[in-house]
Amino acid sequence: MWKRLRRKSPKGRQSIWQSEKTDGTAGRISDEIKRIFVLNRKERRGSSGRKSAVWTAFLLPSFLGVTVFVLIPFLDVVRRSFVTAVTQEWAGINNYRNVFENQAFRLAIHNTVRFTAVCLPLLIGLGLFLAAFLSRLKQIQFIKSLYLFPLAMPAATVVLIWKMLFSKQGFLNGALILPGVLPEGTLLDFMGTGASFWVLVFSYVWKNLGYTMVLWLAGIFAVPYDMSEAARVDGASERQVFWKVIFPNLKSSLYTITVLSFLNSFKVFREAYLVAGSYPHEDMYLLQHLFNNWFVNLELDKMAAAAVCVGTVLFLIILLLQKLWKV
């Protein structure tokens, strides 16, 4: 038992503890030194304004860029959401009303909500499931890499594979017919029917599972090893250790994983667009499709109103999640 404990006690953790300690003392000492010397020197030079100029120099290029490329244009978008597209006359909330009455917008929102509602629990649950098992094994680098690999595969390179898998003549049909799930001779088209939604779900999980798993693993390994080992010594089973000791400590991980997975879910447009083009089956029609189509038709007023709405909703959701789970 002791041998195991010693072997498994991670070295990294100890060094973190140590560095924290030294940080603390070093910080205190430097505060002292600062009080004695720096203030003295400052008085001597009389250059208290210099420091404020320095951070500006470091931050300014970035801030200017953000202002020019994001902040000012976004204010313009907000303004445009209240005026007409061509004549720029005041339109009140007309644009917003148009957007909400727009069938395509409703469809896109419906699909996006449905997609998130299915994918998030699925991805987060699967990731946790895998991470829980993986955290018990040794030498998991290789396995982790296998699951992370889809992250490195550009969506464009899998288009052909997806076609081979999910089209009418694809392998999935073959795999379903072989054990008799589907009767011989009926070929389902997974891309052109409601099943396309599930193709999208699959793509998303395939791409992001490794990412989520790594995040969960980081959370699990951050739980002090002594805690779980103590429970084990007291005779707790692995399952009990996980649910009673480790899981309650993963609250803050859950917050970040949810937010990141949520935001990554907006990128699934890539797969959808690549396999099905600008006008896919209606179950696959996402917000980005709609924005692109409005963009092509230069319906900027609708785009502005929709961008403001989506941005606000996202912002509120993130705030809400933070309120719910902030520890």
Binding site: F69, P73, F74, R80, A307, V310, I318
Partner: peptide, 24 residues
Amino acid sequence: FLFTLYIVLMLMPFQVTMLSSYLV
């Protein structure tokens, strides 16, 4: 305030920033 602003910007997907990018 600035840092929070950066985080919010970081979290906004392309759908939201598309039009503003186009305008500029």
